[in-house]
């Protein structure tokens, strides 16, 4: 698994709960290092171990933790560049949803060895969508729930989300856009330098 993915989990633990929680995770997951490197590749078995350890340390079910990670990814101060990159995907929420099909390719354009789970958007009538996630990590759909919930807020859209596991490695997030202009979303300025 790419270091960027592992670093996201590490960032969530440290930024939300502090270094102490992360050190407990390191100990329980039995990592032989303290910090992930963003640009290194790690054994695929490490990531689920870290997620289980985190769920154990926080004493919360792993699906909940994963949804929180998704929320963190697009709403925390330190992950602002990621929110911006996702906002580039669409001018409105529905446009953004449709851009998720390309997310895997877009990510690979920026970081060639970053392979994100494949996602497919289905449309089932006005405001009714489903996002099919094919991920090797169980609960990836939960992460997307958190991402989508926060991005809906970001666009000022009221959306109801639901998660179900259709098969191993096939999770489906259903999205019901209730009100497209529910609130004033966060502004997105194309030219703001976050670097």
């Amino acid at each position: 698994m790419h270091g960027l993915v592992n670093c996201a989990i590490q960032g969530f633990a440290k930024d939300t709960y502090g270094d102490g929680v992360w050190l407990d995770v390191v100990r329980i997951a039995d990592l032989d290092f303290v910090e992930f490197e963003t640009m290194w590749m790690y054994d695929d078995a490490i990531t689920p171990r870290v997620l289980d350890a985190l769920s154990q340390v926080l004493d919360r079910p792993r699906p909940d933790v994963m949804e929180d990670i998704g929320t963190y990814l697009v709403s925390h101060r330190t992950t602002e560049p990621l929110r911006r990159l996702l906002r580039f995907g669409g001018v409105d929420f529905v446009d953004f949803l449709q851009s998720l099909d390309d997310l895997t390719d877009r990510a690979r354009m920026a970081v060639p060895d970053l392979i994100l789970p494949k996602m497919e958007l289905g449309e089932h009538g006005p405001g009714e969508f489903s996002l099919e996630c094919h991920a090797s990590i169980a609960g990836f759909g939960r992460v997307m729930m958190g991402v989508l919930r926060s991005m809906a807020d970001d666009y000022g859209v009221l959306a109801v989300l639901d998660h179900n596991t259709a098969a191993p490695m096939k999770e489906i997030v259903s999205i019901h856009v209730v009100e497209a202009e529910f609130a004033e979303g966060r502004t997105f300025d194309l030219g703001v330098k976050t670097a």
Binding site: P81, R84, L85, F88, V91, R106, A107, M109, A110, V111, F188, D189, L190, G191, V192, K193, T194, A195
Partner: peptide, 28 residues
């Protein structure tokens, strides 16, 4: 930045938005 341009100022087929995306992604 200077002209506060948005996605709607470029045609959907224009590569400008993709280029801005790439610049930010590559910088990060």
């Amino acid at each position: 930045q200077r002209y506060a341009l948005t996605s709607t100022d470029f045609p959907p087929t224009d590569l400008t938005i993709d280029m801005l995306y790439m610049i930010e992604a590559k910088t990060a």
